[in-house]
C-alpha cells in the first residue's frame, strides 16, 4: 500500500503565512488553534546575514512517539500519516510530552495537531496548506515521489545553499513531511536525531500488556483456586462444628 507524504521546502518558503490561514479556515479551526507556525530565522550579523523561515508542523513520523504513547488509539497511523480521531482523545497529554518535535498542543482538553487533512484528501482534494502555497514550498503525494522531488530540489539549490540537505528520509523511521533544508537542522530547531526513545515506545508495547496480562492471570488463577479453597474451608468449619457438637453431646452426657 502506498504511503503518502508532504514536501516542505524551507529554501522556498517565503514566510507568507498563507498555509497557516488556509489550514485554519479549511479545517475551521477555532481561534487559538493552529496546526502550522511560521517563525523567522536569522544567522550572522549585519550585513553578513542569512535567513529564512521555519514552517513548524506535524512531521508525521513513521515511528510516531505520539501514536506509541496514545492510550486510547485516538492517534493512529494510516497511509504513512499520523491521523487522529478527536472523539477518542482522553486528554491525557501523553502525546504532547512524547513528541520529539513538540507538535501536539492541548486545546479544550483535547490533543490537537495536523491530521494531514484526512477528510479533504479522502474526498479527493489536496491538503489546504499545499493547495494554497504561493511559493510552491509545499507538495503532497506518494512518499517515494516526494522524496525524489526533495532530493532533486536539494541538488538544484546547492549552489545557493552548500549545506542543503533532505531531512526526514530516515529520521524517526522516515518522516511524512520530507523537508528540504537550506542548512543544518539546528538552524530551524529541528532535532538532529528525532528517533523515538525505547522507553517511550516500550511503555505501551511492554508495560501495558504486561499489566493487563498479569492482572488477568491473577484473576484466573485465584478464580479457580477460590472454588477449591472455599470448599476446603467449609469442610474445615464443618469438621469443627461436628467436633463441637460431639463435645457438647459428650458434655451433656456427663
Amino acid at each position: 500500500m502506498a504511503t503518502y507524504a508532504f514536501l516542505l521546502d524551507l529554501a522556498r518558503c517565503i514566510g507568507c503565512q498563507a498555509c497557516v490561514v488556509a489550514c485554519k479556515t479549511g479545517n475551521e479551526l477555532p481561534l487559538g488553534t493552529k496546526y502550522i507556525t511560521i517563525s523567522e530565522r536569522t544567522q550572522g550579523t549585519f550585513p553578513n546575514l542569512q535567513g529564512g523561515f521555519q514552517n513548524h508542523r506535524c512531521y508525521h513520523c513513521t515511528d510516531a512517539s505520539c501514536v506509541a504513547v496514545c492510550p486510547t488509539g485516538a492517534l493512529f497511523k494510516e497511509d504513512g500519516l499520523t491521523r487522529m480521531d478527536r472523539a477518542k482523545c482522553s486528554g491525557c497529554t501523553y502525546c504532547v510530552d512524547a513528541c520529539p518535535f513538540g507538535v501536539p498542543v492541548m486545546v479544550d482538553g483535547i490533543s490537537t495537531k495536523c491530521d494531514a487533512c484526512t477528510a479533504v484528501v479522502k474526498a479527493g482534494g489536496q491538503p489546504w496548506c499545499v493547495k494554497t502555497c504561493p511559493s510552491h514550498a509545499l507538495m503532497y503525494g506518494e512518499r517515494d515521489q516526494i522524496l525524489a522531488e526533495a532530493q532533486a530540489r536539494v541538488e538544484s539549490i546547492k549552489a545557493r545553499y552548500p549545506n542543503a540537505q533532505v531531512y526526514g528520509e530516515k529520521e524517526a523511521g522516515g518522516l511524512g513531511v520530507v523537508v528540504v533544508l537550506p542548512d543544518s537542522p539546528e538552524v530551524v530547531d529541528l532535532p538532529v536525531d528525532p528517533q523515538p526513545k525505547l522507553l517511550v515506545t516500550g511503555w505501551q508495547k511492554a508495560v501495558q500488556p504486561l499489566t493487563l496480562g498479569l492482572t488477568s492471570l491473577s484473576v484466573i488463577v485465584t478464580g479457580i483456586a477460590a472454588v477449591i479453597a472455599r470448599r476446603n474451608h467449609m469442610q474445615e468449619l464443618k469438621t469443627l462444628h461436628q467436633a463441637e457438637t460431639a463435645g457438647s453431646e459428650k458434655a451433656g452426657e456427663e
Binding site: Q17, A18, V20, A22, K24, K131, T132, P134
Partner: peptide, 11 residues
C-alpha cells in the same frame, strides 16, 4: 488556484 493568507482569511 492559490491564495495568500489574507485571501484565505476572507471568510
Amino acid at each position: 488556484g492559490m491564495l495568500c493568507a489574507r485571501g484565505q482569511g476572507g471568510v
